Amino acid sequence: MSKKTLHPSVQQFKEFVKKNPKIVLEVRKGRTNWQDLFEEWYLLGEDDSRWDEFKEGNATASPTNDEGKKEWMQQVMGAVKNMDTNQLQNHISSLSQALGAIQGLILQFQGNPQSKVSRGNKANQPQHPFQFRKD
């Protein structure tokens, strides 16, 4: 089995991506795709300022995990501070009612056997109309 050889420019681009792994993260996050990145790399070259944000030495490219967590916690705390508890309670109550209604519809369409048993006197009746007993 012969291995396909890539065009030299594609091999160079792969080496460039290996040197700058933040480019892979951009593609995985869906912000761009490989085709666009390759075309930009091919037209602009490796030394263009477009690639500065992806270089390893650049500390301002993206916040570290600790900074990202702190920022997220600040956003959550800000949302909690601005929250109206009465309004939140009303939303939770209406959501609970909606879920109860949906659950009731599902049970109705399923023909839940528990709902038939809980109707009272039918639960006490035997399954068959004739009971045969041994003497």
Rank of each mutant, 00 (worst) to 15 (best):
residue 39 E to F: 09
residue 39 E to N: 09
residue 71 E to Y: 13
residue 45 G to V: 01
residue 32 T to P: 02
residue 19 K to T: 00
residue 25 L to S: 15
residue 48 D to E: 11
residue 33 N to L: 04
residue 35 Q to H: 08
residue 46 E to W: 05
residue 24 V to F: 03
residue 14 K to W: 05
residue 31 R to C: 08
residue 68 G to N: 12
residue 70 K to H: 08
residue 27 V to D: 01
residue 19 K to I: 00
residue 58 N to T: 13
residue 40 E to F: 11
residue 51 W to C: 04
residue 71 E to P: 00
residue 64 T to Q: 04
residue 44 L to M: 08
residue 51 W to H: 04
residue 48 D to G: 04
residue 55 K to E: 14
residue 56 E to R: 15
residue 74 Q to H: 10
residue 19 K to C: 02
residue 32 T to K: 07
residue 31 R to S: 14
residue 27 V to N: 04
residue 47 D to S: 12
residue 14 K to V: 07
residue 66 D to N: 12
residue 61 A to K: 07
residue 37 L to P: 02
residue 16 F to W: 06
residue 49 S to C: 09
residue 42 Y to I: 00
residue 23 I to M: 10
residue 64 T to I: 05
residue 15 E to G: 04
residue 41 W to L: 08
residue 22 K to L: 15
residue 18 K to H: 01
residue 20 N to V: 02
residue 13 F to H: 05
residue 64 T to V: 05
residue 62 S to P: 01
residue 30 G to V: 08
residue 25 L to H: 13
residue 55 K to T: 15
residue 71 E to N: 12
residue 30 G to N: 07
residue 16 F to P: 00
residue 73 M to Q: 15
residue 23 I to P: 02
residue 15 E to D: 08
residue 39 E to I: 06
residue 40 E to G: 05
residue 49 S to A: 14
residue 48 D to A: 14
residue 28 R to A: 10
residue 20 N to T: 04
residue 39 E to R: 10
residue 56 E to I: 12
residue 30 G to L: 06
residue 71 E to A: 12
residue 41 W to I: 00
residue 13 F to T: 00
residue 68 G to H: 13
residue 32 T to N: 06
residue 68 G to P: 03
residue 17 V to G: 02
residue 44 L to A: 10
residue 20 N to S: 03
residue 23 I to E: 01
residue 56 E to V: 12
residue 53 E to M: 14
residue 27 V to A: 12
residue 31 R to W: 12
residue 46 E to T: 00
residue 42 Y to H: 13
residue 47 D to R: 10
residue 49 S to Q: 10
residue 57 G to P: 03
